[in-house]
Design a protein around this nucleic acid. Structure first.
Lengths: 150, 150
DNA sequence: TACATTTGTATCGCGCACGACTTAAACGTG
DNA sequence: CACGTTTAAGTCGTGCGCGATACAAATGTA
């Protein structure tokens, strides 16, 4: 192994990048059945918790800009999971509301987190380690997303 | 916070997905100066360590399929960092070799890992935690990439 | 030596991500 | 009220990722 390969950042960033992709792939069989993608699943979770969320709040929660969300939400509207309507108080903001089909999808999605948890915690991977990882990742999110605002 | 938000997998997968994106963004100012992207940087690291690597070995190391790598490598050839040549022993395999420009880029890239390390380890984030995270991520990579082969 | 199978690379289509930019509504200040 | 600024959403172009598929070279086997 070369010197540059031994660098801390390479040892961390590449695994993060790979695991993120591999996990999205692990979700795929479940989400395929539901007719959505992983980023769309994230939007659905925001809406199941808080129906009628405006685009800018979805943007804040998922750390995704509107140039990503606008086309994504249009695809979700086309698929019949959501409705997009301009707010009456403020004509600039667009309110995202679940359709009946979108609300119903929550039932179908209910077992997904458990299925994924089976992958994340195994004999080799302890729950305590995973929880510690979670805290570390959230610390990075705080730092890195603050940097972006400057 | 809703019940589904409390699920382990959501608490882990979303942060992983976000941190991966935010870190790629953190690399961007450095890589922009060099004229490459993060995935291209990964390929360069493979080549700096092992010039003349065939496409299928790059694929294995980076866990990226050829339908991602082929166009990416063509862009890198167009940018003048690499050469793509069919192997003489086996006409199917394509050998990737660094150009002089590509070799020279290693010098320019040398300070990048340290810059990133400054972001990854701070007063709030201990090196020991980061190393533990690394082990956990590699454990997941082992499991998840094995699943894909089946 | 014929032919099925495997292997290595590439093409195609679609859905993100994201920087740069546009457009329109709302707001603030003189 | 006029007008510059801010805010919210969207468009455009480029580069991934990746499933499905194509194709040719190499290999295995009868």
């Amino acid at each position: 192994m070369d010197d540059s390969q031994l660098q801390l950042s390479n040892q961390i960033c590449f695994p993060l990048y790979s695991v993120s992709r591999l996990l999205t792939k692990a979700y795929k069989p479940f989400l395929d059945k539901m007719g959505i993608t992983y980023p769309q699943y994230l939007v659905m979770m925001v809406l199941w918790e808080n129906d009628g969320t405006p685009v800018n709040q979805i943007s804040e929660k998922l750390l995704l800009n509107t140039n990503t969300l606008s086309p994504l939400l249009k695809r979700m509207e086309k698929s019949g999971f959501i409705e997009r309507n301009r707010s009456e108080e403020d004509e600039r903001t667009v309110i995202i509301k679940l359709t009946e089909k979108g609300k119903h999808l929550k039932t179908e999605a209910a077992p997904v987190p458990d299925e994924l948890a089976k992958i994340l915690v195994t004999e080799n991977i302890k729950l305590s380690e995973v929880m510690q990882l979670k805290d570390l990742l959230n610390e990075w999110i705080k730092m890195l997303s603050d940097d972006n605002k400057k």
